[in-house]
Nucleic acid binder design. Structure first.
Lengths: 199, 199
DNA sequence: AAACATACTGAACGTTCATTCTGTATCTTA
DNA sequence: TAAGATACAGAATGAACGTTCAGTATGTTT
C-alpha cells in the first residue's frame, strides 16, 4: 500500500470515528455534515469523496457495529452451555455494549425516519435479517436441545427482536444497572412466562 | 353555543381529521403544514390560530387517539374473564385498530425524532405513563387472581410496553392476518414462556 | 519531468418548511 | 350600529442542510 492509499484510509477512519461519536451524542438528524467537518478538519467535499451520502455513512457505521458485535459475541458464546444462559449472557453483553457505544438511539431514529433511499431500505432490511437469523439459530438450538417448546421459530425470533427493539427505546432514561435489571427480568418472562402453572 | 363557536369547532375538526389522515399516510415529518392546508382548504395562518405548532397538533391527535382507544376497550373488556383472555382480546383490538387508524408509524417516527420541545417531551412521557398504568393494572390483577406469578410489576409492565412497541415496528410490512398471528404468538410466549417445564 | 490519477477544498446552490405578521372578513355584544 | 372580539388569509421570513462542482494540491506512473 503506497503513501496515498494509507493517507486515504486514515482520513476515512477519522471521518468514521468522528461521525460515530457525533451520531451517538446528538442522534442522526441533529448531526450535520458541517458538524463532522468541524470534528475532523476534513472538508465537506472530502467527506462526499469518501462516502456516497450522509445516509451511506451512517449505514456503514451500523454495519461495522453489527459485525464487531458478532465477533465479540462469538468469543463469549462458548462459555455458556444452555440456550437460556446464552440468552442472559447475550443480553448482558448487549446492554453493556448499547450503553457505551450506543448508535441505538440514532439508529432507532433513523429506522423510523422517512427520508430513507431505496438502497438504504435494502441495507436496513439486511441488518434486520441478520438479527433475525441470529435469533432463529438460537431458538432452533433451544428446541433441538429439548430446552424450548417447539413453537413457530419465525414468530418467536421476531418476538425476541421486537422485545429488544422496544426495550432499547424504553430503557433510554435508565441507568446501566436499572437497564440490566429490566432486561434480565424481560428475558425471564420470555423464558418462563407469566402464567403460574405452565402446561 | 353561537354560530361562530360552532363554525370554529367545525374547522378545528376539519383540520384534525385531515391531519390525522395525512400523518397516517405519509408519516410525521413528511406531512407538511402545506399539505394540511391543501387538504382542508384552510389557510396556514388559520391552522396556527387553532394549534400552537405542528408538534402540538400531532400530540393532540395522539392524545385523542389514546383516549378513544381506552373508551372502546373498556366497552370490550367486560366480555373477558381471565387476564390471559383480556390480553389476547386487547391485542386483537389493538392490532385491528393499529392497522386501520395507525398513527403508529408516525408516532414511532415522532418519538424517535430529535426535534421535540420540552413541552412535547412532557406530553409524550404522560402518554407512555398512561400505557404503563394500563399494563400495571392488568398485571396486578393477574397476580391477585393467582393467574400470574408474583413478579416485579413495574418491570413486567415495561416489558409488555416494549414488546408492543417493538412489534408495531416489526409488523409494518405484514398483512393484517400475519400481524395478528405474530402478535398472538408473542402474547403466548409472554404468558407461557419458551422453556419446556416451567417451575 | 510531464502526464495522470487520486485526494481534497469550500463556496454556492437549491430546496424544504415551520412559523410569523399584517391585514381583512365575519360575527357578537353593548 | 358602532366597537370589539374572533376567525381566517396568504405572502414573506429565515434558518437549516445535504449535495454538487469547479478548481487545487499531492502523490504516482511512464
Amino acid at each position: 500500500m503506497n503513501k496515498k492509499q494509507l493517507q486515504s484510509e486514515q482520513t476515512k477512519k477519522r471521518i468514521v470515528d468522528a461521525a460515530r461519536a457525533l451520531f451517538v451524542q446528538k442522534g442522526y438528524k441533529a448531526t450535520s455534515i458541517e458538524d463532522i467537518v468541524a470534528a475532523t478538519g476534513s472538508s465537506k467535499g472530502n467527506i462526499y469523496y469518501h462516502f456516497k451520502s450522509k445516509e451511506g455513512l451512517f449505514l456503514t457505521l451500523l454495519e461495522d457495529w453489527d459485525r464487531e458485535w458478532d465477533v465479540q459475541w462469538s468469543q463469549k458464546e462458548a462459555q455458556y452451555t444452555s440456550v437460556a444462559e446464552k440468552l442472559y449472557g447475550m443480553t448482558d453483553h448487549l446492554v453493556r455494549d448499547d450503553m457505551n457505544h450506543p448508535l441505538t438511539k440514532a439508529s432507532d431514529e433513523f429506522f423510523n425516519s422517512d427520508e430513507i433511499s431505496p438502497e438504504g431500505e435494502e441495507r436496513i432490511a439486511q441488518l434486520v435479517e441478520n438479527h433475525l437469523q441470529f435469533f432463529r439459530k438460537l431458538i432452533s438450538q433451544g428446541i433441538e436441545n429439548q430446552e424450548f417448546k417447539s413453537e413457530n421459530v419465525e414468530h418467536v425470533a421476531i418476538t425476541l427482536e421486537s422485545l429488544f427493539l422496544g426495550l432499547s427505546q424504553m430503557a433510554r432514561k435508565l441507568t446501566l444497572d436499572e437497564a440490566l435489571a429490566l432486561y434480565q427480568s424481560a428475558i425471564g418472562v420470555f423464558l418462563h412466562g407469566m402464567v403460574k402453572k405452565s402446561a
